[in-house]
Amino acid sequence: MILAVALLAGAAIVGFTAPRFLERMTAGQVAPSVVIAWWFATGLSVLLTALSGVVLILVPGHGPARWLLDRVHECWSAMTHGSVPALDDVLGAFGALLIAGALTRFGLAAFRRRSEAIKLHQRQLGLLRLAARRASGDEPLMWLDHGQPLAYSVAGRPSFIVATTGLTDHLSDDQVAAVLAHERAHLRGRHHALTGLADAAASAMPFVPLMRQAPAAIRVLVEMAADSAAAAAHGAETVRSALVRVATGGSPAGALGMADNGVELRLSRLARASRPRPWLSAGALAATVVAAPALPAVVGIGLFAVTSTFYCPM
């Protein structure tokens, strides 16, 4: 029971506090791919840790009862003079129901989102056949005759990039190349799938801030990742100036502000862009793989270890 509660507490703490740290990482110098990895690894580990906690509550005695935990348990029993009957069962059933509901919703949302993406892809292709010129060569690039500078990518089979002639009118050749490199990075990095996963997680567990904030955060992060891919090929300053030109290029205000776009964050990151250090990113990524999955369990068990040593020193 103690271990189970520790795991649940750890999952809750990480689920509620992690977004603040991840946002700081997003605003800082950490590579966007590393922050994306952190976000997904933390989300998955929160879910799995909570699941383990619920399983331990429902199946008592089968958990790994180590010496330390036994001591903590004894301490806990001594502290609480008899527990409320059947609390475990109520808590366990509630937790199991919550997690089963979340997993079902996740599956449904992922499915809905995927069929939406397929429908959009079909519709885009149908309209583009009429309105667009296909770029020569193998590149899946479609040109629209329109004055407003615009570029976007659509995932599917085949994936493709759509750009307007306004882009070539308002931007230099280098800047256009940078924008197209940015869109190619989206397709290569499967960024559409990542945002879809985040959307599904958010609609499955909107009560966990880590999940609720994922869609907006991942959208900014994939833009940053694509920016840095474009910057690696065409220079950060080129991407920066292209971003300002496209963001301010005509057209009245949309419903979305800068915070939603992350344009401001992206600009400041591009301004600070240092030379890429692949070994640093690789190291950070490795650290993510090790640290993020263990985080909720470590936090929860650590919390109980600290409290129990404080209240009843062994």
Partner: peptide, 29 residues
């Protein structure tokens, strides 16, 4: 129809940048 779909904030496609209001664009510049 294509330009409208690209404006959709919930869209499944990823845009290079969304346009911002004149005041915001002044801040950006």
């Amino acid at each position: 129809a294509l330009l409208d779909s690209a404006k959709d904030p919930e869209s499944v496609l990823l845009r290079f940048a969304r346009s911002v209001s004149p005041r915001e664009s002044e801040v950006l510049r």
